[in-house]
Amino acid sequence: MISYLDLLLKLTIWFLLTSDFSLANIIIGVTICLLLPRKLTSPGKLKDWLRALVEVLIAIPQAYVEAIEIMLFPHKKEGVKMERVKPQRTPGLIFLDIFIITFTPKTIVLKYHEAGWYEVHRIKRRKQS
């Protein structure tokens, strides 16, 4: 059975894409969410989902601060760094991790490696060691 949290994540993405809360759109969204293929994994723990949602809420003001920094100060250095995926992550939580990293203006996930790594591109104000 599909996890309720994964279903909620897929429905949220559906409503963000369609911007329509009519009964017909809700029925279509639920149908599509149930028909989408999914991996058979253990369902995510509620604690992990709540922690990820808190990280999303923290990323919103952080994105504004970074956007202002980019406008006011030049960021001429850049680099690519490999970051390890947190253990025991379901595909929905991995998606949220990638969303959080990419949401902030100074970072973007270039690639997710199945071995458990994110390839993250960052811009910096100056060379940091």
Rank of each mutant, 00 (worst) to 15 (best):
Y112K: 01
K10P: 00
W14N: 10
K86F: 05
L36N: 08
E78W: 11
R122K: 10
Y4W: 14
L96M: 15
I28R: 08
D97T: 14
A63T: 15
K10C: 02
S19F: 11
Y64A: 12
K124Y: 15
L50Y: 13
A63G: 06
L16Y: 13
T102K: 00
I27F: 13
A115C: 11
R122Y: 15
I108H: 13
V80Q: 04
L110G: 05
K45N: 07
L23H: 05
A115I: 09
T31M: 02
R84N: 10
E114T: 11
T107M: 07
P91R: 03
G29F: 09
L110C: 08
K10L: 09
K81P: 05
I58V: 14
R51S: 09
E83Q: 04
I60D: 06
E83D: 06
V109K: 01
P37R: 06
K111R: 10
T12R: 07
F21Q: 01
G79D: 12
V80Y: 05
N25C: 11
H121E: 07
K39I: 02
I70H: 00
V85H: 02
Y4A: 12
L72V: 15
D97A: 04
H75A: 12
V120G: 05
C33F: 12
L35H: 07
P61K: 07
A67Y: 11
W49M: 05
D48M: 14
V54E: 04
T41D: 04
P74I: 11
V30P: 00
K127H: 11
L5H: 14
E83N: 01
V65H: 08
F99Q: 06
V54L: 08
N25P: 03
P37I: 08
L8T: 15
K111L: 05
F103V: 15
T41H: 01
T102P: 00
K10Y: 04
V56P: 01
G92A: 14
E66A: 12
K47G: 04
M71A: 11
K10Q: 07
E83F: 10
A52I: 10
G44C: 10
I68Y: 06
E55G: 07
S3N: 07
R38S: 10
D48A: 14
E66C: 08
T102E: 01
T18L: 00
L9H: 12
N25R: 08
K127W: 15
F99A: 13
I70Y: 00
L5V: 14
T104M: 03
I123C: 00
I101N: 00
L72W: 14
I28M: 03
C33K: 11
K10H: 04
L5T: 13
L9E: 12
K86W: 02
H113T: 06
T12M: 08
L5Y: 15
V30C: 02
I70M: 01
L93C: 06
S129R: 03
L50N: 09
F21T: 03
R89N: 09
I26N: 01
L35M: 12
I28V: 09
I13A: 05
D97C: 03
P105Y: 12
F21W: 13
I58K: 12
I98Y: 00
K77N: 07
F99D: 06
C33T: 15
L57Q: 08
